[in-house]
Nucleic acid binder design. Structure first.
Lengths: 224, 224
DNA sequence: TAGATTGTTAATCGATTAACAATC
DNA sequence: TAGATTGTTAATCGATTAACAATC
């Protein structure tokens, strides 16, 4: 069932729009599986606002960048909207990815179920430890880090995840880019340098905690 | 060696400022440990810009919200600046946290070394599985999820991490808030509802990947 | 027709970048 | 004094919110 969910994409899409649409997509997905969602045919921006926490005006605006998907006075057809969002976000396609680092975090990521759901398949896990190379986690073989570059190239992989200690993160990123990877999700707490045409998204867990902490301390001073 | 790194905090601090200062803090920390960093006494905003990738004007502006830490014509005294940043970000204090969910991700987080470095101590891990309760990961005992609320209350814990499947995430968040937790880092792919005065930061790994993917697909159309 | 809700324009708000006087 | 670099103001840019005509 390959449906056609076409959308335009001329304008300059604001940075945050994609993030919000991703959240809408996720919430819609969950909503469709509820009792209510099974029977409901359309959903309004106000209702989407309620389940996502995103301002309704903004939802309409974000969607409008890609086309007109709703009916005035009615709302958006739920299932169609979900299909469109998936198409916009590229999660209707399948994406092969590589994961570097078979430590605790790497293992957790390999067994993370959310990936399959959104069309991501881990094609190979890489590590530099003799003790790990050749073994398997979750059925996926751990390869020697030295073969990363050629593996990426021959399999034409465009997406990579870095889950190694900070000292080796930049080196891994370089290898990924050399092999042709364009999108990197980095969990190492370093600022990665990369050429134009490549995008790196760093998730630093400590930094995320620090942001929360700042809020705590700031609030204890001037409780707003 | 409890130094005094005072700073003012009257103004309304932009949202992104804290995130950027966190990155500066991390990069400065790494820089101090390099050969160059060991001897260097001061650092300019341009130099910080180079190691962080953040615009130099912005770095100066971000710092200016909290005080005057540099000398015109000279730059910022490296070690002092680092101390000030730690004080601003609250990472010079110790923070006790609880972690809920002893699955793969939970295990990875418990053994994550970055926490200690930034003053976070996991006081307890909680799970609902009979098989896990009573066992230990990394020396930290796994408690029954039912004791979460009272544990948080008696230990006056303000920070919690959610690493459970999406179906139980909201319930866990409610218990945390009921116990007095103010800051929650949530790894479950759901939008958590929470009362005023509490802050929740959700890290959804799939969504982060989707953002990268959008960039890939958008680029293949109009390669800008 | 009346009520609801979209798509879009206008108004507001906030964040980033540029520029420069102050000063080491 | 000349060069460097801060702290801060002004200019620009972008994102969010409000408002409303179009229309189901």
């Amino acid at each position: 069932m390959t449906e056609n969910h076409s959308f335009k994409n001329d304008k300059n899409i604001p940075n945050h729009t994609i993030h919000r649409l991703s959240i809408c997509n996720r919430c819609l997905e969950l909503f469709i599986e509820t009792e209510q969602g099974k029977t409901k045919k359309t959903i309004s921006s106000t209702e989407i606002s309620k389940i996502t926490g995103i301002n309704a005006n903004q939802i309409r605006k974000d969607l409008a960048y890609f086309g007109e998907f709703g009916k005035r006075g009615i709302g958006y057809p739920i299932r169609d909207l979900h299909g469109t969002l998936k198409a916009i976000l590229g999660s209707s396609r399948k994406w092969d990815i590589v994961l570097v680092g078979a430590g605790n975090l790497g293992k957790a990521l390999v067994s993370y179920k959310g990936f399959q759901k959104r069309g991501f398949t881990i094609k190979g896990v890489f590590d530099n430890s003799r003790l790990k190379i050749g073994k398997r986690i979750n059925g996926i073989e751990i390869y020697d880090i030295h073969s990363l570059r050629s593996f990426v190239k021959t399999n034409e992989i465009k997406v990579g995840i870095i889950a190694v200690p900070l000292k080796s993160a930049q080196k891994v990123a370089n290898d990924m880019v050399a092999g042709g990877i364009k999108s990197i999700l980095n969990f190492a707490p370093v600022t990665i340098k990369y050429p134009k045409g490549v995008k790196v998204n760093t998730i630093d867990i400590s930094i995320e905690l620090e942001r929360l902490i700042y809020f705590l301390t700031a609030n204890s001073k001037n409780s707003s």
